[in-house]
Design a protein around this nucleic acid. Structure first.
Length: 222
DNA sequence: GACCAGGCACATC
DNA sequence: GATGTGCATGGT
């Protein structure tokens, strides 16, 4: 929680994820795979203007070709159009297309269902669980992983589940906390933890010094 | 022009 | 299992 408060104090409330509906979160979670959010925004805007995100039915009735044409700006458009269709098809099969019912499934069951969909991995599934279904699940992304590694708090071999457990075992199960914390790691990562960035003015600098003094090892710059 | 970015599935060893 | 590789665009 010390780290959370340090980040919150520096960056303030993030109000993430910027979407109008759970359906938009789900589509956005696919679109953001290995892609900068700025490019995702362009694709989301095109989908909104085409009213494709207005309902499940609208998305179901959109062909994969139309979808891929609209999401082209965010890259991997053919792959992502197919993955979005897979996701929607799973909701159709599971609950007859009732998204609210699908997102109301118990946390563990919903995560399992999501992970069984081709194109949905742990990060995408957890983003949907937290931001669309409002389930208390900590989302681990590239920024979180990179920041933790550079601070010497995880090993380079730590898996997604290892990192997720690290947070969930030490924090209360709280949707708004996980929401804000994940967003704060992203905010930190964007500014200080890009591949070639160095950490001058990083809000975690003092904590870095404390942890490196304790384990006697020099820390990475963030 | 080169490099990078909130992943994932699949092939190969 | 672990390690590549393909997918693709826009910004810097």
């Amino acid at each position: 929680m010390v780290v959370f408060h340090r980040l919150f104090g520096h960056f303030g409330p993030q109000r993430w994820w910027p979407a109008d509906s759970p359906l938009e979160v789900m589509v956005g979670a696919i679109l953001t795979q290995n892609t900068a959010w700025s490019n995702v925004e362009i694709a989301i805007k095109a989908l909104r203007e085409s009213h494709i995100l207005s309902s499940m039915a609208a998305l179901v009735n959109t062909t994969e070709e139309t979808l891929s044409g609209l999401i082209r700006p965010c890259g991997y458009f053919r792959v992502k159009a197919h993955r979005i269709k897979n996701l929607i098809a799973a909701v159709e099969v599971q609950t007859g297309g009732c998204l609210d019912k699908f997102l109301s499934l118990p946390r563990a069951e919903l995560r399992e269902k999501l992970l069984s969909i081709s194109g949905v991995g742990p990060e995408t599934a957890d983003s949907i669980l937290l931001y669309a279904a409002k389930k208390p699940v900590f989302v681990v992304d590239a920024y979180t992983r990179r920041a933790l590694f550079r601070h010497g708090w995880i090993s380079p071999k730590a898996t997604y589940d290892d990192i997720q457990s690290l947070f969930m075992e030490h924090l209360p199960l709280d949707v708004s906390l996980y929401n804000e914390y994940h967003a704060l790691w992203v905010a930190l990562g964007k500014v200080f933890c890009r591949p070639k960035a160095r950490c001058s003015g990083c809000p975690l600098e003092e904590l870095l010094d404390q942890s490196s003094a304790q384990n006697g090892k020099p820390h990475h710059t963030c």
